[in-house]
Each structure stands twice: as structure tokens, then as C-alpha cells.
């Protein structure tokens, strides 16, 4: 990670953060506007894994939509590597809460969707896709169709699809929220492994405190109505983190601290 940062510094580019969010306001409606996000400011370093945790209605998904260029902010701005985001960009990969696979495309074809849209063809992209499918444990399922896969496998395809075009930033919107608890733990471990291999900048949205602390270098805690950043927690467990890290005292301390803040603000429902 330090090498990547050093490389960028060396190339003359100022030490820009991978993601910069400045005084971001998002309101919905015009008569009696609902403030979804209120003066949000934070940065994500290159190669950093940032988790945003908060209850429903705190504007997490809105934040992700603005970062993906799908929603224009009311005030303030977001930038990727110093460039203000005003429309969707192809150096971003998005993983949605549901896998959002196309039933008429096989696993391989679904994973290759970004390549098809962008117009990347040839053996390089195919072999990268195959390597990613192998990485998430989907080797041998390339020709299967989504309805033949379990929920966890479908979401793995969704993750591969977000990585295929080699984006610098990965945005994940509660990607494991629809999975059962056991599958979710496995997917968390898998995601960490993928991230250690690919070293993307990740913004991971979740409403599970444990998931956030387990995965992230840093956790932003958001509180609702209006959506604000209430706390920032740095998590320094060495990687790769075993699933058993959740049983340590330090892990419990982080979780407790975050829960206190959320409880004080009305809590997680």
C-alpha cells in the first residue's frame, strides 16, 4: 500500500486521496426538503478499506450513489483522485445489495458485462475474468446461469463483475445484507482475501458493526436525520485477519464504542 502511495507521490501528482468528500449535502424534495446528508467531509486514502456503518435512513446509500455519479449533490462535491465526480466513471466498480445479475447471461457473461459496455475484448480481459472467478471460488461455474446459483455465489459474481474492468475504487452497498449469517462470515473472509490480492480502494457500506470492524482499516459511523459522520474509528488489526479476531478484547472495544454512539443517536433498529 505504501508503495502505491509513494509511486503516486513520485510521479509528481500531489498526494491526492483516492476519494475526497467535501461538505456534501444531499436533500430530497423541494417543498419540505428531507436532508439525507448534512455537511459530510472525509477522505479515503489510496488502497484503504473504509467502512461506513449506520442505521437505515442515515444516508449511506445516498452517499454511495453520489460517489458513483448516479446522483448529483445538493451542495459540496465528491472527487476521485482530485477529479470532481459529475457523472458515472468507468474506473469505479459498484457492488449492490442484491447481486443484480442478468438472467440471460451466464456467469462468465455477467462478469464480463463491464468489459462489454466499455468495449474491452481479447484474451487479456477473458483471462483476468477467469482468474477473478477462480479467486472467488467460482471455477467450473462459468457457463452456469444465475438461477442455478445460491445467493452467496450470485453475490460473488457481482463482486467479480465490479472488479473485471480493473477499477481503482470499489463501492460496495451492503453487499452481504441479504445473505444468512454463516454465508456472510465466509463472504467477509473472502472479501478480505480478494482485497489483499487486488488492493483496491474500497468504500464498504453496511449496517453491521462487526462486519465493518472486521473488514475495514477505518470505520465511519453515521447517524440519521440528518445523515452525519458521528465518529471515526481506526482499526489496526494485522492482516489477514482470522474470523476469530471478533473474539478479541480490542475488537469488542471497537464494537462497543460504535454501538454507544449509534445508541445515543437513536440506535440501530
Amino acid at each position: 500500500m505504501n508503495e502505491v502511495v509513494a509511486e503516486r507521490l513520485g510521479s509528481g501528482v500531489a498526494a491526492l486521496s483516492a476519494i475526497g468528500v467535501r461538505d456534501l449535502d444531499v436533500c430530497f424534495g423541494s417543498d419540505q426538503p428531507v436532508v439525507a446528508l448534512d455537511k459530510i467531509t472525509f477522505d479515503v486514502a489510496d488502497g484503504e478499506f473504509l467502512a461506513v456503518v449506520g442505521p437505515s435512513g442515515c444516508g449511506k446509500s445516498t452517499l454511495l450513489k453520489v460517489l458513483a455519479g448516479l446522483l448529483a449533490p445538493t451542495a459540496g462535491h465528491v472527487s476521485l483522485r482530485g477529479e470532481v465526480v459529475s457523472r458515472p466513471r468507468r474506473d469505479i466498480g459498484v457492488v449492490f445489495q442484491s447481486p443484480v445479475l442478468f438472467p440471460w447471461r451466464s456467469v462468465m457473461e455477467n462478469a464480463l458485462l463491464p468489459a462489454d459496455v466499455i468495449g474491452l475484448t481479447g484474451p487479456a480481459i477473458t483471462s483476468r475474468t477467469q482468474a477473478l472467478l477462480n479467486l472467488v471460488g467460482l471455477a467450473g461455474f462459468e457457463k452456469r446461469y444465475p438461477r442455478e446459483l445460491s445467493g452467496g455465489m450470485q453475490q460473488r459474481v457481482g463482486i467479480v463483475r465490479a472488479l473485471v474492468h480493473n477499477p481503482s475504487v470499489l463501492l460496495m452497498d451492503e453487499p452481504f445484507g441479504a445473505l444468512d449469517a454463516l454465508t456472510r462470515e465466509i463472504m467477509n473472509r473472502e472479501l478480505q482475501r480478494i482485497w489483499l490480492e487486488e488492493r483496491k480502494t474500497v468504500l464498504f457500506i453496511t449496517h453491521s458493526i462487526a462486519e465493518a470492524v472486521y473488514l475495514a482499516d477505518r470505520v465511519l459511523v453515521m447517524t440519521p436525520r440528518p445523515g452525519r459522520v458521528a465518529l471515526e474509528v481506526r482499526v489496526d488489526f494485522p492482516r489477514p485477519r482470522p474470523l476469530s479476531v471478533v473474539n478479541t478484547k480490542e475488537f469488542g472495544a471497537h464494537v462497543a464504542r460504535i454501538r454507544d454512539v449509534l445508541d445515543a443517536s437513536g440506535g440501530i433498529e
Binding site: 448516479l70 468507468r90 440471460w104
Partner: peptide
């Protein structure tokens, strides 16, 4: 969500039509 997926990839209207809406 499918539309958002295509839009997040900066797909053109034509691509959204042929790759998503029509099938």
C-alpha cells in the same frame, strides 16, 4: 438496480436498450 448498474458503467442509451431493456 439493473439500470443503476448500467449507468454506473457509463453505458450509452443504446447499450442500456440492447443489453438490458430489450432482453
Amino acid at each position: 438496480d439493473r439500470i443503476n448498474l448500467m449507468r454506473s458503467l457509463a453505458a450509452s442509451h443504446r447499450q442500456i436498450f440492447t443489453m438490458l431493456l430489450l432482453p
